Amino acid sequence: KWEEIAERLREEFNINPEEAREAVEKAGGNEEEARRIVKK
């Protein structure tokens, strides 16, 4: 599940997989929260 979210974030925000994974981890697997983290 987290991998899927990280993949979507990576494609959408054009970030590297590591950044995407970190955002999802910080968000506890919550996609909306992960998006907010990435946008900062």
Rank of each mutant, 00 (worst) to 15 (best):
N14I: 04
A20Q: 02
R36G: 10
E19G: 05
E25K: 13
K40P: 08
E3Y: 08
E11Y: 13
I5M: 14
P17T: 12
I5T: 04
E33D: 05
I5S: 03
R36T: 11
I37G: 04
R35I: 10
N30K: 05
E31Y: 15
E3F: 12
V24Q: 00
E22I: 13
E25W: 14
G28Q: 15
A20D: 01
R21L: 13
V24I: 11
E7N: 12
E33Q: 09
K26F: 08
E7Q: 14
K39L: 15
K26L: 10
R35T: 04
R21W: 14
G28H: 14
G29T: 01
E32H: 08
E33K: 06
A6T: 07
W2E: 05
R10M: 12
A34H: 01
K26V: 09
E22H: 12
I5V: 09
E25A: 14
G28M: 14
R21N: 07
G29N: 03
E12W: 05
I15R: 00
V38R: 02
E19H: 09
W2N: 06
E12Q: 07
R8N: 04
R8Y: 05
E7K: 14
I15E: 02
E7D: 12
A23H: 03
G28I: 07
A23K: 02
V38Q: 02
E18V: 09
A34S: 04
A6V: 15
K40A: 15
N30A: 03
V38I: 15
A34V: 03
R8W: 05
R21Q: 08
A6G: 04
N14W: 07
G29P: 02
K1Y: 13
R36Y: 08
I37K: 05
E33N: 05
E3N: 11
A23S: 04
A34Q: 00
G29I: 00
R21K: 12
A20E: 01
E12K: 05
K39H: 09
E3K: 09
E12S: 05
R8H: 06
V24S: 02
E31H: 08
R36D: 11
N14G: 15
E4H: 11
E33A: 08
P17L: 15
A27W: 01
K40V: 14
K40C: 09
K40T: 15
P17A: 15
A23M: 06
V38G: 03
E32W: 07
G29F: 05
N16H: 11
L9S: 01
K40E: 15
P17W: 15
K1D: 13
N30Q: 06
A34K: 00
V38E: 02
K1R: 10
R10V: 15
E32I: 07
N16Y: 07
R21V: 09
V24N: 01
P17F: 15
P17I: 15
E19P: 04
E33G: 06
L9F: 02
E33W: 10
N16I: 08
R21I: 10
K1T: 15
E18K: 08
A6M: 15
F13I: 02
K26T: 04
W2L: 07
F13G: 02
E4D: 12
K26Q: 04
I5A: 03
K39I: 15
K1Q: 14
I15W: 02
E4M: 11
E12P: 00
A27D: 00
I15G: 02
K39E: 14
